[in-house]
Design a protein around this nucleic acid. Structure first.
Lengths: 164, 164
DNA sequence: CAGTATCCTACGTGATACTG
DNA sequence: CAGTATCACGTAGGATACTG
């Protein structure tokens, strides 16, 4: 059997996972956020096989997450994040924050994200109300939007999203 | 060859991906956030094989993301999110927001997340400065914390995290 | 250095039958 | 209904050799 593609699933999460759902992909993006650009940088730092890295990078380029083009010095290629790729940063921040909290290093947090200009630490990623209050998971509810299909809409209404 | 475990990788992202890095896991959590509790609810809604669902749920319970116990009516088992699991909601929100933005449904957004009490839509998940300004990817920099090892620390300093 | 090409393994996935 | 047990399969992942 082929893997079921999640792509048909009229679900934003499924769509996103089609792009970043593989184990190494987010790790590669992580490195890209941290300034890696060259094939060898990704490869050494991640300890990933070259063929895997190659296919992952190619797929990221296909998906519009990264672009590949010659470096200024002309000697090699560079992989750079597109805006579409930069938009994945909240995902990475959310995952890292979870990891720091629930799988901590005994010596303390490994990375601290700061505002580039001021150097001041940023807030952990969280849901926020319009007026800027941090919201916990249970304070949030999903409601049907115009793009939701009838079956999902019914399911959503029948249950009590995230109570308990 | 066994898959390389990412667990040894002194990286919060890797640790998080060890837990939610598989394709179906976040989809299951999605359903849990939306109120699914019973095996059959997950199964029908996701269209996933029972054996896969079973192993995924078991692993989530092992990892402390969900708990399993008899339902109030005593007739069946329930899977409920723990706090540790609820803490993954920002990850899901971030992914869904990305999916809605970059892989939209032509009819409009599928789900709209609102504050439970007021019904008012929440903000899209984003990095935020201490004083509540939304920050774009390029405005953020990662710096070494006490838990970071020497090699990663050097790499981080040598590069220019997320410029360009 | 930056990949591509081979070849291999095992894990994630899948269909389905079976059990209490 | 809520799973467990089989059995099968493809793909992600892996080691390594090769090319420009």
């Amino acid at each position: 059997m082929k893997y079921k593609s999640l792509a048909h699933m009229n679900c934003a999460l499924a769509q996103a996972l089609e792009v970043v759902g593989e184990r190494w992909t987010l790790m590669i993006l992580r490195d890209a956020f941290f300034g890696a650009r060259r094939f060898s940088q990704f490869q050494k730092h991640l300890g990933i096989s070259k063929n895997i890295l190659s296919t992952r990078l190619n797929r990221l380029v296909e998906d519009g997450i990264m672009t590949r083009h010659p470096a200024p010095d002309g000697a090699h290629q560079e992989y750079l994040l597109t805006e579409r790729g930069m938009d994945l940063q909240p995902v990475m921040l959310a995952l890292m924050h979870w990891g720091e909290k629930h799988k901590p290093n005994p010596n303390g947090s490994r990375l601290i994200f700061v505002e580039r200009e001021s150097g001041e630490p940023i807030q952990p990623v969280s849901a926020m109300s319009r007026d800027g209050r941090r919201l916990s998971g249970r304070q949030i509810k999903a409601t049907a939007g115009p793009g939701l299909d009838e079956t999902s809409r019914r399911q959503l209404e029948r249950r009590h999203p995230v109570a308990r």
